[in-house]
Nucleic acid binder design. Structure first.
Lengths: 95, 95
DNA sequence: ACTTCGATGATCAAGAACGATATCGCCTTG
DNA sequence: CAAGGCGATATCGTTCTTGATCATCGAAGT
């Protein structure tokens, strides 16, 4: 699924045209981006939650030279599915 | 940030009332849920991607009794932030 | 539809997360 | 506003994941 597919879904659920649906989808995504950029935790009941956590992993691998390389620490986004989503995933795909 | 906050953002970006904005947000989330439930990969450029992967972890811990417990295998959702989001997170919070 | 630019995949090592359950906080709803 | 239900947390072991880089596929835009 890509952004366009989501816009299509909105288009069906509302009376907007594709362009408008798309802009709405982007607005939602941008809201999430803004929140996460501010390192704010995003919690959506029934769907899941995004949390920004400091990452401590400090090593990586350079494939060309096959040697370890130092990696700067940074931020990571942790996504945890909510109960509903977990339940849905527990079912055999074609539920 | 919670669902209501996202609806607020939509409310500002459009001319909808809170209720309509909320229903739209839910429509977006439901689209994502549907896709993920079907084990479909969701890829949104600039934001991130969700991928459903089979988890093999098979052991856990019961806190009360402090003993190992068997854990059924299942599905996990992996979220990977896109380049834009990663870039934003690299900046010192109050960019 | 085509072009462009981004995302994925692979690798190796080390660090991190997940897993269940009980409790508390807090989001959600009437 | 109050009540209800869901989500987060902690524990400890095991497994997985990240991390960068290059090529390729695919998403997004024209």
């Amino acid at each position: 699924m890509i952004k366009n597919d989501i816009a299509l879904a909105i288009e069906k659920k509302t009376d907007f045209n594709r362009a408008k649906a798309m802009s709405i989808v982007e607005a939602v995504l941008e809201s999430l981006k803004t929140a996460l950029t501010g390192r704010e935790k995003v919690e959506i009941r029934g769907f899941g939650s995004f949390k920004v956590v400091a990452k401590k992993t400090g090593f990586g691998r350079d494939i060309r030279r096959q040697k370890q390389i130092r990696i700067e620490k940074g931020q990571r986004i942790k996504f945890r599915p909510g109960q509903e989503l977990k339940t849905l995933l527990s079912k055999p795909k074609s539920a």
